[in-house]
Design a protein around this nucleic acid. Structure first.
Length: 424
RNA sequence: GGAGAAGUGGCAGAGUGGUCGAUUGCAUUAGUCUUGAAAACUAACGUACCGCAAGGUACCGGGGGUUCGAAUCCCUCCUUCUCCGCCA
């Protein structure tokens, strides 16, 4: 959530940023925030004045009692009770205003960075980097879903039986390749200085609010209503929330974490070839990198994270491109996002396999993730995260791009992890 | 799941209705002393909000209540510990 003080300091920037997200009412929204904040301040002032007086009197009651002036004490008590009830009313008024402001702020997305391109649709994302050449496949090459079946790497039907659509069961070398990718991604991240964590796969409401899934986007998460817990849509949620309500010493920054988790997404409203095979699943594996960084260094860190993901794709030998997302396609909480897409040669499609974002203080403000340099006052940190990487689409592209007439070749970097070099 | 106990500032640990935002110790920071260090001594040292400031307000696990006044009493939820049961 946006920091009100930042809005007050630079109202025009906030409005311009929201306009970039194609929010027609940007100006109204920001003006409402400012108006509510003004109301809030005066309500608090008024309430606290009454409270201060009330506290004064309450103290004097104690004095009078001690001195044995009972009658006087009784009189003062009546006065105090009046003040108290007045302050209670004011307290309620203040709470109403604060809730309004809070609710409004929850509906406002992050202000995009200056370099975020204008645009409304994914077509307007800007391609900033391409690497690798698109392979020419042999005659009769097939999409990955046929390869999965042919080599018995995954079974969608049995997944439907035990759970439902979108929950494939990986088998044999399919399962092993999946696990090899997880280990490869983890070991690369650890080499790059990330500390591994294995977080819970279920999160509570407070965590959902902390990273921005709640309110509003609860529809994308599976909800265990009996316990009011949510299955994580990404490891970003539990890992970032590790630092919720923490004040981190500045010399601990940056905090770098990596975690492998399954991810669960309800993804309502998808259909057709976009969801075919491994393209879109309700449960999938992902290795996520998360950093908590000093505001002055977060964009440098974002670049580092982009470089890290590039390195992974380079090593896997997959052709890919990097998109700078436009204002209309960026996530609610992000200030700047780079998407990575790999080319899946049989489908002849670009598949999103990573999204690397800087959230600046947006999540930190919700989560109260702060740091302190020396004796300074605590200050909101910047949070960043990125997929490094999401598994199923990588698997799809690897299978499709590396297929030959007599099997699928495993990239060299993975062979140490798979223990085999070919699927046939 | 059953029975008990407990949750106070970075940590330890006082405080059972008023002058307590909270004694004290440790840790931390600065200073004195010292050739340097240690020790000792002195001082500072929670967070948020309102206010130009002086200052004020809130917070003793969360929420609610009683009272002129709550860390302290009551209700409720959460968490931790001990014992029993069950169990990977």
């Amino acid at each position: 959530m946006l920091v009100v003080k930042d809005i007050l300091d630079n109202k025009e920037k906030a409005i311009a940023g929201l306009k970039k997200r194609n929010i027609a009412t940007a100006e109204e929204l920001i003006n409402s925030v400012i108006a509510l904040d003004t109301q809030r301040k005066s309500a608090i002032s008024e309430m606290e004045n009454v409270l201060a007086e009330s506290n004064q009197i309450a103290k004097s009651v104690g004095q009078l009692m001690k001195e044995g002036k009972k009658d006087e004490a009784e009189q003062v008590k009546t006065k105090a009770a009046e003040l108290r009830s007045k302050s209670n009313t004011l307290k309620e008024d203040t709470a109403v205003i604060e809730e309004k402001l809070q609710a409004l702020l929850y509906t406002i997305p992050n202000v995009p960075n200056e370099i975020v391109p204008d645009g409304k649709t994914p077509e307007e994302n800007v391609n900033i980097f391409e690497h690798g050449s698109i392979p020419t496949l042999h005659e009769g090459a097939v999409p990955h879903w046929d390869l999965l079946k042919k080599y018995k790497l995954a079974d969608f039907e049995v997944g439907v039986k035990i759970t439902g659509a979108g929950f494939p069961v990986f088998k044999r070398k399919g399962a092993m390749l999946n696990r090899a990718l997880i280990n490869f991604f983890l070991s690369e991240a650890i080499k790059a200085g990330y500390e591994e964590v294995i977080p819970p796969l279920l999160i509570n409401e407070a965590s959902g609010y902390g990273t921005g899934q709640l309110p509003d986007k609860e529809g994308q998460m599976y909800h265990c209503t009996v316990d009011n817990l949510f299955l994580i849509p990404t490891a970003e949620v539990p890992i970032t929330n590790l630092y919720r309500d923490e004040i981190i010493s500045a010399d601990q920054l940056p905090i770098k974490n990596v975690g492998y988790t399954p991810c669960f997404r309800r993804e309502a409203g998808s259909y057709g070839k976009d969801v075919r095979g491994l393209n879109r699943l309700h449960q999938f594996d992902k290795v996520e990198i998360v950093q908590i960084q000093h505001p002055d260094k977060s964009y440098e860190t974002l670049d580092n994270m982009v470089e890290h993901v590039k390195g992974l794709l380079n090593k896997l030998g997959l052709p890919y491109r990097i998109l700078r997302l436009c204002g209309g396609d960026m996530g609610f909480t992000s200030a700047l996002t780079y998407d990575f897409e790999v080319y899946s040669a049989a489908q002849q499609k670009w598949l999103e396999v990573s999204s690397v974002s800087n959230f600046e203080t947006f999540q930190a403000n919700r989560s109260k993730i702060r740091f302190r340099s020396g004796q300074d006052k605590p200050q909101l940190a910047h949070t960043l995260n990125g997929s490094a990487l999401a598994l199923p689409r990588i698997l799809a592209a690897l299978l499709e791009n590396n297929q030959t007439t007599d099997g699928v070749n495993i990239p060299e970097v993975l062979q140490a992890f798979t223990g085999f070099n070919k699927i046939s």
